[in-house]
């Protein structure tokens, strides 16, 4: 967090059908609808999140991710980061306050992998959902489905990982927690963080720019991941793989798809990192084990199914 970038703030996801998508993200994942706007976008949050929203759904004729945003500590840090990005040669777009309801001004930029990111300092603080700020209970009643705890990270596919790394590490102050190297020493996957989590954002090398692999939500326990798997079956939701464990991060996970084909993950556990930790390295020859620790081989979909 050395440059003031604090944590993931929100992700805007395109969906083919809003009603189907909303049912998936609320009834199954357990996110809570907090608002809608006149563009038809729907705002959602997970119950432990303190700001008004972390997921925005937008109906469009192709699914995928519009952008992911990080919250920075304050306006001063935002101004400095903006200057640093411009000095680094990154084109920065201004998004005025209120373009997303109850969110302050954002700056938006596209990194060489082809993905759009945003930084912002202010969003309406609504507190955790269903519990009080003082003497809070352990959890609120009335949560649905998987009862997602928080929006945790995204995994994105695109080219030019090295140039993307430079922006995240050298300009935005991220730290490389884990990587996959090919035999020539090229980084084909990079897991970057501004926190103690193994990733706040991750990239895997792919020829086509700007592809979305998954948005991930945190659960507390392995039991919760197994329960999520039960719910995926009960609702006849499209499953990808799991429950299983990743080698990278060692998180326990399940992958599935929203009704528009965007991949979601819910997971628990995972390693921690501090800025003095050296990156954990996986060799590309061990990619199967790095991704799916139990099967030790990739399913075809992991590399090819993207939105």
């Amino acid at each position: 967090m050395k440059k003031g970038v604090m944590r993931p703030g929100h992700v805007q996801i395109r969906v083919l059908d809003m009603d189907e998508a909303l049912k998936h993200y609320t009834d199954l994942l357990g996110l809570i609808e907090t608002d809608r706007d006149d563009q038809g976008r729907v705002y959602l949050k997970a119950w432990t999140e303190v700001d008004k929203f972390s997921v925005v759904l937008r109906e469009a004729d192709e699914p995928g991710m519009d952008f992911m945003a990080f919250k920075v500590v304050d306006e001063t840090a935002l101004q400095q980061l903006e200057k640093d990005l411009v000095a680094f040669g990154v084109e920065v777009e201004q998004i005025p306050e209120g373009e997303l309801k109850d969110c302050g001004r954002r700056i938006r930029f596209t990194v060489p992998s082809g993905h759009a990111f945003e930084l912002f300092a202010d969003k309406l603080y609504t507190g955790k959902w269903g519990v009080t700020d003082v003497n809070p209970e352990a959890w609120p009643r009335g949560l649905q489905g998987m009862k997602a705890v928080r929006f945790d990270h995204c995994l994105l596919y695109g080219p030019e990982l090295a140039a993307t790394y430079d922006i995240f590490v050298n300009v935005l102050g991220f730290h490389l927690a884990e990587q996959v190297l090919d035999p020539e020493g090229n980084r084909i996957a990079q897991f970057l963080t501004v926190s103690m989590k193994e990733h706040d954002i991750a990239f895997i090398h792919h020829e086509e720019k700007g592809k979305f692999h998954h948005a991930s939500f945190f659960l507390e326990t392995w039991e919760d991941v197994l329960r999520a798997a039960d719910l995926i079956t009960m609702t006849d939701t499209s499953i990808d793989i799991g429950p299983t464990r990743h080698g990278l991060t060692h998180g326990k996970t399940i992958y599935f798809f929203d009704p528009s084909g965007n991949r979601n993950e819910v997971f628990c556990g995972g390693d921690y990192t501090y800025p003095d930790h050296k990156p954990v390295t996986w060799q590309a020859e061990q990619l199967g084990k790095a991704i799916f620790y139990h099967d030790r081989q990739l399913n075809e979909r992991f590399l090819t199914v993207l939105t």
Binding site: L16, S238, D258, S260, G261, T307
Partner: peptide, 12 residues
């Protein structure tokens, strides 16, 4: 037929 997302999103 190859199976991907099953949601009309990935094109597989």
């Amino acid at each position: 037929v190859p199976v991907g997302c099953r949601g009309g999103g990935c094109g597989l």
